[in-house]
């Protein structure tokens, strides 16, 4: 990895955002988190009348549905913001007419993507913190905080989301489309990754789909570190599985990105 490129990309992205930070976009993302939480709150209080099935407790290890749903929606906000921005970096370069000059330079792409990822992480932490404060108003409570588990969950999530971003970025650059691609993926994630309800409630084929997206394990891990109710050995299993799936995404995403870059440059010919 080239640290020079990593640092330069962080600086460049920071300068760009300082001058043109998409405030409305940030508000939009926080609002999405708010609506998700609000929707879950309405469902829980007025549809389920505060009643939870026995299976919910046994599957999730908690009886606090609102905290369960809010942590899920915060993680969803985190994955959407990081994946969206990192996967769109090359598309943005293409739109701004800088893709060719960037590809002309002899640097390693991993440093460039990591630089984008790290800066986005800082921004996303800020946005998620604001969303978390809103969540407190809806009943977010930290029952059993595990600091080591929390740090592992954050680092592992970043690692896995980086992999997801690469794959998503490849699809976007290949199809030259961001909206249909990102919205399809994010809707699928919302449904199958256990954001507001346990994935075990889904039919088997959707559960399988959820299990190959590392976001599912990262969300479970984050919940376990904040809300408790997960035995140690199960947490270790989650960590290993998320790490393996995340690695697979990165291992597939990096070489694929190289190929897609070439296709994108060829497509520029018309």
């Amino acid at each position: 990895m080239e640290l020079k490129v990593l640092k330069a990309t962080i600086t460049k992205e920071f300068q760009v955002r300082l001058r043109a930070y998409p405030v409305s976009f940030m508000v939009g993302c926080i609002l999405t988190s708010f609506y998700t939480t609000f929707g879950a709150w309405l469902m829980y209080h007025y549809f389920f009348r505060g009643q939870l099935s026995e299976s919910f407790g046994s599957l999730t290890g908690t009886r606090d549905y609102m905290s369960y749903a809010i942590v899920g929606s915060l993680m969803y906000l985190f994955v959407v913001r990081t994946c969206l921005n990192v996967s769109r970096t090359l598309m943005t370069e293409l739109w701004e007419g800088t893709l060719e000059s960037l590809m002309l330079a002899p640097f390693r792409r991993v440093s460039y993507f990591l630089g984008n990822m790290l800066l986005q992480t800082i921004t996303t932490f800020g946005e998620t913190s604001i969303a978390a404060l809103i969540g407190v108003l809806f009943g977010l409570r930290i029952h059993d905080f595990n600091p080591v588990g929390f740090i592992i969950a954050v680092l592992l999530s970043l690692y896995c989301f980086f992999g997801v971003s690469l794959i998503l970025g490849c699809v976007m650059l290949y199809t030259r489309n961001t909206y249909i691609t990102q919205n399809t993926l994010f809707t699928a994630m919302f449904l199958v990754c256990g954001i507001t309800f346990p994935k075990e409630y889904l039919p088997m084929w959707l559960r399988v789909l959820g299990s190959i997206i590392p976001v599912t394990d990262c969300v479970s891990l984050m919940r376990a570190s904040l809300l408790g109710g997960f035995p140690q050995d199960q947490m270790v299993k989650l960590v290993i599985r998320a790490f393996v799936i995340g690695t697979a995404y990165i291992a597939l995403g990096m070489p694929l990105m190289k190929k897609v870059e070439i296709i994108a440059l060829e497509k520029m010919e018309g």
Binding site: E2, K7, A8, K12, E100, A105, F107
Partner: peptide
Amino acid sequence: NMIAGGERMIYWRLSAYENLWYYGQLYG
């Protein structure tokens, strides 16, 4: 290196100095 016509290949939101500095970093 390549220089193309038009207004492409530079970052509009960066200054002239920042543009050259960034590309300089990419070339190590």
